[in-house]
Structures are given as structure tokens and as C-alpha cells.
Design a binder for these strands. Sequence first.
DNA 1: AATAACACCTGTGTGC
DNA 2: TGCACACAGGTGTTAT
Length: 267
Amino acid sequence: MPELPEVEVTRLGVAPYLVSNLIVRNPSLRWPVPETARNIIGQTIRAVRRRAKYLLLDTDAGTCIVHLGMSGSLRILPRSTPAEKHDHIDLELENGRVLRFNDPRRFGAWLWCELPETAHPLLAKLGPEPLTDAFNVEQLHAALKGKKKAIKLCLMDNAIVVGVGNIYANEALFAAGIHPQAEAGKVDKERLTVLVAEIKLILAQAIKQGGTTLKDFTNAEGKPGYFAQKLHVYGRGGETCTQCGHMLSEIRLGQRSTVFCSLCQTR
DNA sequence: AATAACACCTGTGTGC
DNA sequence: TGCACACAGGTGTTAT
């Protein structure tokens, strides 16, 4: 996912360079890559930004919107590097390099928007960025008011807060001692305060770790950095709780694997 | 309106 | 070894 380090690396690699060509080998991503995506050719990338998990490449003519889906990745390579399987898109730059989009599952997206991104339907209804002050206990409490569904599903709802995926939702709920199935509207403010802090902490740590991986992004290797981080519950169903030693439970919630400690996560 | 289920797609690991 | 199946970091769309 394009968390902060990846955006930063992409920024350093593609801005402020002129785009000399766009090669689309396979346009069938989540949505077909539009013809208008070619409008980036001849434009200078002024800035690279991130909103939620969308990467935004700004030019004077419009903004390229990139999403990595479940399996996408971006790399900056010498233009001569041969394309491999699932290398669907190349953004060729005048600096002799190429921003290459690879995505085996093709859940990702490569779009073009000529209006401010707030007008784009994919970005219009997104909740606050978790690492900004806009995401806070007051905001979360208000957003969860009256919600009957499980707190974990709400954390993964982009209208409430963006950027909290399955790993982080599991980990943050464990850290805050909240049961993933707790009715969202009934989690008290005290707990939500802890939860907000833990989400910020865990995401910040993940970004830090992701940076380690992304620093050598020109190497062929590399799983996302946050895989290297210490995970307390994610992927550990049936193993023992790092806090109390009890066996971790694993259930499905919204078709996503959910791991928790039934002793440590009670509310 | 809110919630749950489904859809998209390929790769990998497990069990028979 | 082959095959069937479950599951994977996401999220918009459709059904209930």
C-alpha cells in the first residue's frame, strides 16, 4: 500500500520530471485504464500526494490517481529494465527512469482526473487521515454513534477513517483491549481514546518500517516493510497471546480474518 | 438508512 | 504429482 514512505520515494523519483510516455500493457485493472490517462504525456509531475490509499500525481492538466489494491506495487527503475509478468503500466520519464505498476490480482486502479480530487467520486466521501488531528476521539465517537455493527468493521470503513486495513484493525483493537465484535456505538469514550492513540502509533510504526523496505526499492526483492514488524495478533490465530498466554481466537468478520485474545479484549 | 454479502483476479499453501 | 479448495494487505456495488 502506498503509505507515507512509498509516496515519499515515488515523489523523489517522479517529481518534478516530464512524462515522456505512458505504456499500458494491460488496461484491465479494477476499472479499465481510461484513454484520458494518456493526458499525462508531456506533462510535468508537479507533486506526489497521498489521500487514503490513493496516490495522486499532480500535473497542470490533471491528476493521475493510482491505487494498489491488494497486490499492487510501484517501482522506479531504469527505463531499459525489461517488463515482467503483471507489469501492467509504465510511466516513462525524461530522467531516464520509469515508474512501473505491477499488480498480479489487478484489484488496483490507474485513473485520470481533471477536476480537483475532492470532486472525484472515489475520493469525495473519505473520512479523515488517521495521522492528522482530524482523526481524534471526538470525531470517532461521533462517527460511531448509533452504529450497531462490529467496531472492527467500522475501523475498516473509509467513511469513518481511512488507511486502517485488516492488519492494523486487528493490531489496534488488541492494543486497545477492545473486542473486534464489540458494538461500535457502545464502546466508551475512554476506550476510544486509547484506540485512536494506538491506531496512530501502529500506523506510524508501520510507516517507519515500510520506509526501510522502500529505501532499497530498486532491488528486486521486497515484501512490504510492515511484514517485518512485530505483529501481536494478525496471522497468529491459535497461537498464544503475547500478553497473557491464552490461545488467540480466530473468526471471520466481514469476510476478513479476525484474530483476538478473548481475555485481553473484552470491551 | 444501515448492514451484509458479493464481486473483481492471480498466486500460494494445504489436504486428499 | 495432480487436483480441489481456502485464503490473501481492498473496496465499490448489489442485495437484504
